[in-house]
Amino acid sequence: MTRYFGDWPALRQVSFRLPAGALVLLLGPNGAGKSTLLHILAGALRASEGEVKIEGLPIGDGRARQRVGLLAHRSLLHPDLTVRENLAHYAALYGLQGSEVTSGLDRVHAAAFADMAVAELSQGMRQKAALARALLHSPRVLLLDEAFSSLDHRTVEELREVLQAFRAEGRTILASTHTESQLSDLADGALELDRGRLQQRRGCVEAVLA
């Protein structure tokens, strides 16, 4: 897969396959293309060449999008709406029933601040709400884009627990980080990007034969 910005290849010939149930780190310095890669995997950007498949479905397909969740450093929630209203909005976007909003809130222990506006939340609460949003539609794959930077230790612990439960259901996590991550000890593989090229595949990450 290659991604051009204009003529500029932000990613070049990156290709890999992740096995189900794995937690894989996406490593690399700033500007290596980690965010770009995650945005393409989430279907927000198009790959200039090549394709992304989730469980055999191309990411342009709505069914593939149902299977991917993205947790970025911004929450993707509207600050003037409450957490509950935001989740109800996302439920509609994913074709879910309203009842799943409550279970989504419980999953990340966010019920306590569910009726506060997102703008009033602390950084940690906001990230929990964002995780509730990312997991609302029970994706098969969760993408984390520097999701744990600037969070306190306790919140990280809580989020780790949620992620481990998620993974225990056979779901996959790909987490980008530019430093040693709070997830390093859980990871069973890693991808290393540098200047848009895939430098290294470690652990469970498989190659894709052209």
Binding site: M1, G21, A22, I54, E55, R63, H137, R140, G170, R171
Partner: peptide, 18 residues
């Protein structure tokens, strides 16, 4: 064109999709 990149191939879970 380069190879397809695919993530988590585990078929047969379509039933649980909304």
């Amino acid at each position: 064109m380069s190879a397809p990149i695919s993530t988590a191939s585990r078929p047969g879970t379509a039933a649980e999709r909304p």
